[in-house]
């Protein structure tokens, strides 16, 4: 998708996220992952990492050489999305304590991802 299409989609998800509370950590973390991945794709497209015909679904699926390069060019962007993804096994698909804190942190990380994409 084009950066404009990704942005519209991310903003739709963020409007839905605004209806949620961190007492619903599973959907907050998932919503941040979905919206954040759209912003992540905006960044990748603007950096020329990938074309609008080739979207990335998960940062961890990037080939090692691309992850390395991205970690040097946009470390905050990659670290933020990786951190959100790291919450999913324990708090979305699992039931470890600390989910509310992870949801709060996820919302902060979404702002980091958005800011990085918007600077490009």
């Amino acid at each position: 998708m084009t950066p404009e299409q990704h942005q519209r989609k991310a903003e739709r998800i963020e409007r839905s996220l605004a209806k949620c509370s961190v007492d619903q950590p599973e959907i907050v973390i998932e919503g941040v992952m979905l919206a954040g991945t759209h912003w992540f794709n905006i960044a990748l497209h603007r950096m020329g990492f990938s074309s609008p015909e080739k979207d990335v679904m998960h940062a961890q699926y990037l080939p090692g050489n691309e992850r390395l390069k991205l970690s040097l060019l946009q470390p905050a962007l990659l670290q933020a999305l990786d951190e959100v993804e790291s919450f999913r096994p324990a708090y979305v698909r699992g039931n470890l304590p600390g989910a509310r804190r992870a949801a709060t942190r996820s919302l902060e990380l979404l702002n980091v991802i958005k800011a990085a994409a918007r600077r490009l």
């Binding site: 996220l17 209806k19 619903q24 919503g31 979905l34």
Partner: peptide, 25 residues
Amino acid sequence: ERFEACRRQFDAVEDFELWYWSLLS
């Protein structure tokens, strides 16, 4: 039950992405 409670707060069209994700999960 938790995901179903989330789904109920969403409008199926306006909030389709998170409505769908709640349902899927």
